[in-house]
Amino acid sequence: MSIVVTLLSIIGTVTAYLLSRKIANKKPSPFTTPVFLSTVLIILVMVMTGTSYGQYEQAKDIMTYLLGPATVALAVPIYKNRHLIVQYCVPAGTGLILGSIVTIFLSILIGGLFQLSEVLISSLAVKSATVPIAIEISHIINGDMSITAAFVIITGILGAMLGPWLLTKTNITNPVARGLAVGTISHGIGTAEIAREGELQGAVSGTAMAIAAIFTSIFVPLL
């Protein structure tokens, strides 16, 4: 029985993904961002069919098996664009550090205004780092690891949805700047989205994601 559920979960997830990609190509909008739209579709189907997350988890483990190799694969676009990345390391590095500091301070500041608990604020401060690094830092600064993971994912989805849209609205059209902004703030999920724009954007975003996570891991515990 559980094998059937797992198999159906995998087929359903792949279908939702392919469908969302098609819709996103036809009607690009924050709400058709494939990661967001697929997630909403799958959660809807799960609620309607009364499937619990526990039943989906085995399928999740199978499907995410290649996430590690897929992250490693980002080295290829980085390698191909290495000359451009080195050439722009000062402008990009400045944008990365300022953007990271702003996002961290805003989380702490607004979280404080709403009188959120210290655990929640600590978990929010590290949310722009990629999941495995954010969990590590959160552990060091007494955040909650699983809540941190949830915040990181929401940050990634929001960055993927709103980032390209916001950059276009504010006339930020330079591919290096676009890749950098989305990768710095919304890690792998943002990188996956901005890579759909072009190889250079994806390469810069992948590099920014790795460096921003390292920066956050050094900076946040100092606060």
């Binding site: 997830t13 990661v35 697929s38 799958i42 959660i43 399928a59 999740k60 994912i153 999920i189």
Partner: peptide
């Protein structure tokens, strides 16, 4: 690969 993780929300 991020979709199954996001469903975890």
């Amino acid at each position: 690969f991020f979709i199954p993780i996001s469903v975890g929300l």
